[in-house]
């Protein structure tokens, strides 16, 4: 499988303010890469660098084996063959649906243009709407037109900048899968930026978490859960509890909830303080055992309760339970057996 997009140690700053810090990643041809991060983490800026609207201070951008930005080299956006789905869609208000889609097809002759537009109208389920203007479309339809316009010239890469931020919450899930299947049907390669976990896991072949201009991890989606590379990834995904402890001579971390084998124990010295991420699902409350935590918060959430517990030894954890427990009561919390855990130094 060839690589469509490759970023090498990109750095970017607005004046003194560093926005992107040493970003490297790659997206394989035909796949969808997804950058997950809160607003303001620099992910939209990264897309603008790849499109060519901003120049990196250092680092390289390669699109299909061609360097488009690097030391002393910049290829203008016009010549990068990159398509973009803008956050606010940026449909041309004075052009009809088919004129919008055909906008980037100036290299083709009239017949070819018409053929490609029809192809996209049917792929994006827009037949019958070709003569409408953007203001006559619903939110989802506008979305599909914007996608069709971005895909029309068959760009080497499509960039999607929070494409669903303007769509009502209820519709987002359906749209995510719809857009994914459209991109796949056209064999497009895409880099998708979002702050929504659901959206990201719904579409990504490759995925990363970005915080404060740093890409903390770039891997397969399930590895983000199973092998988080940084405690902040855990904080952001909110799927696990960070529990602290001490490394023993067996390469285990000894916590107040038990001892766990680490897959990176070589990185730690014996008796060093460390922490480990434990999936919230493996926690449960054991009755008739000596209490080790007190309940600080109970939140009901569709069929189950989310319990916040303060361990007597200090860590604060969350777990799911079927029945409510009074705030302030003392309970015993246990964890299931787990393997393949990664330890982190205490920052």
């Amino acid at each position: 499988m060839t690589t469509t997009l490759k970023l090498n140690s990109l750095n970017f700053a607005f004046g003194q303010q560093s926005v992107l810090n040493n970003i490297s990643l790659s997206v394989k041809t035909g796949q969808i890469g997804c950058l997950l991060g809160p607003s303001g983490c620099g992910k939209s800026t990264l897309l603008r660098l790849i499109a060519g609207f901003e120049q990196p201070q250092s680092g390289e951008i390669h699109i299909v084996n061609q360097m488009v930005a690097g030391t002393n080299l910049t290829i203008p956006p016009q010549n990068r063959e990159v398509g973009m789905l803008f956050q606010d869609l940026a449909l041309f208000p004075h052009l009809t649906v088919s004129q919008n889609i055909a906008f980037g097809l100036h290299q083709l002759n009239k017949t070819e243009q018409k053929h490609r537009v029809n192809e996209l109208l049917s792929l994006c389920r827009l037949e019958g709407f070709q003569a409408r203007y953007p203001h006559q479309l619903s939110g989802g339809q506008s979305q599909r037109v914007a996608l069709a316009r971005a895909m029309a010239p068959k760009p080497k890469l499509i960039l999607l900048d929070e494409p669903f931020s303007s769509v009502e919450t209820g519709l987002q899930n359906d749209l995510v899968h719809e857009v994914k299947s459209m991109l796949q049907a056209d064999q497009s390669t895409a880099l998708w930026v979002t702050h929504s976990l659901e959206e990201a896991f719904g579409i990504a072949d490759q995925m990363g978490v970005m915080l404060d201009g740093k890409l903390l991890q770039w891997s397969l989606p399930n590895e983000l859960y199973d092998k988080p590379a940084h405690p902040d990834v855990i904080h952001f995904l909110k799927n696990a509890n960070l529990v602290s402890g001490t490394i023993n001579s067996l390469g285990e971390i000894e916590t107040h909830l038990g001892n766990f084998k680490l897959n990176n124990d070589a990185n730690f010295k014996v008796n060093e303080q460390a922490q480990v991420g434990l999936n919230k699902r493996i926690f449960h409350i054991s009755k008739n055992k000596k209490p080790n935590a007190s309940v600080t918060k109970v939140v009901y959430q569709g069929g189950q309760y989310i319990l916040s517990l303060k361990l007597f030894e200090g860590d604060i954890i969350e777990c799911y339970v079927p029945n409510s427990i009074h705030i302030g009561s003392n309970v015993c919390v246990d964890v299931d057996e787990v393997t393949e855990l990664t330890g982190f130094p205490i920052s």
Partner: peptide
Amino acid sequence: NLDEASILTGH
């Protein structure tokens, strides 16, 4: 954005 969308298509 509209300018950028147009420029990306090579205009």
